[in-house]
Design a protein around this nucleic acid. Sequence first.
DNA 1: GCATTATTTTAATCCCGATTAAAATTTTTT
DNA 2: AAAAAATTTTAATCGGGATTAAAATAATGC
Lengths: 211, 211
Amino acid sequence: MQFEANHKCKVGETMVRNPDETKFQLQHDRLLKAAAHCFNQKGYSGTSLKDVARQLGLTDAALYYYVRNKEELVYQCYLRAADIGRDAMDRAIKDGDSGLDQVRLYIRYHLEYMLGDRGPIAIMSEIPSLPPRHRDQVLEFSRLHSLRFEALLKTGIEDGSISPCDIRMTGNAIMGAINWIPKWFHGDQRTAARVLQEFPEILSCGLRPVA
Amino acid sequence: MQFEANHKCKVGETMVRNPDETKFQLQHDRLLKAAAHCFNQKGYSGTSLKDVARQLGLTDAALYYYVRNKEELVYQCYLRAADIGRDAMDRAIKDGDSGLDQVRLYIRYHLEYMLGDRGPIAIMSEIPSLPPRHRDQVLEFSRLHSLRFEALLKTGIEDGSISPCDIRMTGNAIMGAINWIPKWFHGDQRTAARVLQEFPEILSCGLRPVA
DNA sequence: GCATTATTTTAATCCCGATTAAAATTTTTT
DNA sequence: AAAAAATTTTAATCGGGATTAAAATAATGC
């Protein structure tokens, strides 16, 4: 994903786009993470741009250099979250053997991202409050992701690694448990390790066939 | 739990407390449910009192007859949620046989309340944004509830109905899956029945000993 | 070191939502 | 039906947070 600065650049005329945008990219990335943290903590409307800015040692007005407005900030946070989720899913499908295996790996990879360098990731809990265009797009991404996850379950049931179940509900349960993590996890590495250790097993062991 | 009107009543003097407070109670209860619905949907800060009032066919100012302010509204929603959770827990412990049985029953009862007449129930996702006094109290209730749930798991492990696991993480996973439901459930009875049918099994089948 | 571009701040504006007091309406009591 | 109490509305205040423009500062290329 590529994000652009808010400032207008007449390319090839007076102003020139910064050829090496790494500085901007880096700050922009920090911004999305700080925002994700705040949004997860206090919700979209509950966090002021000042809150986010404070974490970056900036003024609220400074954020407008990186983002058109607050709504675009959540939007981009959500896009980033979708990206990361997709990434975890892709890897799980590639690396996984059976369906159960892929499910377990997806959970693992996703958690590694959430709790590791790429975290915090915004939980998409306020999609309805986005304006129609963005909402529909994010909703579509979210729907797609759910479908892919459900497909893993289906695969598992077909290859016998997962015992038959209501795919939709099972998917909702597993995703819910994952999405709720930011509500009680507050960054200590001890706990992060424990989550990484336990969750993939907890969330997938109920799927195994009784044999 | 008993809630009082915002209006001051000099009992035994000029003004007399309404002897039959059922009208007030009823409206107050409707208010908490409407608020819970909004809060679950758009978050605490994201919902205006006007939003809540609209659902009741009232003006925003009218709500102040029932609660001191917006914060007290969430607070009471959370107290109500705690009450209902406690209720489900009490019944589960009373009715349940083994630890696993109690866990399953707790999930069942809680879902019946959430999706039935007592719903919607506010998910306590914004405890941190309450003012210190209320926050600490709700946090305590929440902590207690989690402990009781973990105790069920412990009982189950001891009586052999649940296979050994990380109690804390398992509890978090199950509670998370439940708490997330309002994010995707939007009131259709078809789905409600399905949740009720599937969730207790999904969330507890992973606990059984492999044997 | 100068000129240009990139980044941030200062200092306003603007609007929305919470809150309140007083007035109006509805309900209950007698 | 009048009086009292309960409930709701109207109309105002008030502050906070989003947003913007212009100015200031930092960084970079030459």
